[in-house]
Design a protein around this nucleic acid. Structure first.
Lengths: 211, 211
DNA sequence: CAAAAAAAGCGACCGCAGTCGATTTTTTTC
DNA sequence: GAAAAAAATCGACTGCGGTCGCTTTTTTTG
């Protein structure tokens, strides 16, 4: 019969088994970063990954449902981390464009250094096979929520129209971000030019296209 | 030794072999549309597709390099077709937004009816594994070129700023289109609401986000 | 038209993502 | 601490995408 109680009173101390599971999971993710980055996602086999992680192939599948889920887990973690980082260091009184550039260029630089992860993640999250799960939406929303105060402050400072919904504003910015990523992945814009292009596009988005 | 000349004088009449190749290619694409639409892309095996098309598995690979290339070929053809259709029926003197809505909603409706094709195609074209080939860029550019006269006319009519490059304008519109597709694929916006959302976002893009 | 050359067709085969039942390790029970 | 239960590990196995070399069909040559 299953037991859910933890014999240790505290919530932090987990059983040997739990600790071991966390270690193994980390180990798989670390090995994945190493191999996917070096050889590419498709070029790395699960067996190879298992060997690198020092475990059996089947074990990987008791931690992740699919190969792509490994990428998803890693990126979700990173996004969560980036969110906490950024929430700390953001300064809501600098001009909106500057703030957005800092945030998105940080993200973008991260993507350029983890091209394979970014690509698979974008496939899964932007044009998924099935509608996103509640949990996946949450990751997305948490990230958007982080930006809401910035937009709200910009509205107060008269940098953004106050009659627009925050969701729509987020959408516009996100659209430009996706466009820039696409331009980079397709090779249309070289890495070094992305910053300038992004700034131009964001500025135009805010100023509008009509005379 | 290979001969490239055609013994028929005209350019239209092709050899039996050529005709047969064209028929077979069409047959593969038709079977792919049928099966991918019914069962999904991943759920349809190449062997199954070969059986449906009445040919051997290996033969498919002498027409297309990968399974995803079948989708790419189909979509490129469709896009080319849509382009010629639209070029004919567009009226450059109706308001910009209306024209864009007609074009993109037609595209969008097509995607909703070929969800699997659209998804794979978007993966390949928006976040590709390798930079796009010259040929792939051409398909993209041909489509953008179709829209240039519309933007230019809108600039003349004072609906769009004349100091902006057409490429940038295209970028903004394309970004919104991608965003809407993403919202649909993720399930964030149901099919019936896409039209309204697209119109709102396009309007805001043109008017700008600042007060 | 026959022989030679080129192109197209084919399916057995290979490597890998993902499954499953057998085995080992940890936890619970008494 | 031993037996029983539960959880975790594992690697042989399955099915599919893609390859390769052999066979058949079409075209060219003389």
């Amino acid at each position: 019969m299953p037991k859910y109680q933890n014999h240790n009173i505290g919530l932090i101390m987990s059983s040997i088994r739990e600790q071991h599971k966390i270690r193994t999971r980390r180990c798989i993710l670390d090995s994945a970063v190493k191999l996917f980055s070096r050889k590419g996602f498709e070029q790395t086999s699960i067996e190879e990954l298992a060997r690198e992680a020092g475990i059996g192939k089947g074990t990987i599948y008791s931690y992740f449902q699919t190969k792509r889920d490994i990428v998803k887990a890693f990126c979700d973690d990173q996004l969560e981390f980036a969110r906490s980082e950024l929430a700390a260091k953001s300064n809501p009184d600098t001009p909106l464009i500057d703030q957005l550039m800092i945030i998105f260029m940080a993200d973008f630089n991260y993507v350029t250094e983890h091209k394979e992860f970014g690509r698979v993640y974008l496939h899964e999250k932007v044009f998924p096979k099935e509608p996103l799960s509640e949990e996946d939406f949450q990751v997305q929303n948490d990230y958007f929520d982080m930006l809401y105060p910035i937009y709200r402050r910009a509205q107060e400072l008269g940098e953004l129209r106050s009659d627009l919904e925050l969701l729509h504003i987020s959408g516009h910015i996100y659209a430009i971000y996706l466009l820039m990523l696409s331009c980079w992945y397709t090779g249309m814009i070289p890495t070094g030019d992305i910053g300038a292009a992004m700034k131009t596009m964001l500025t135009q988005t805010i100023e509008g296209l009509k005379p």
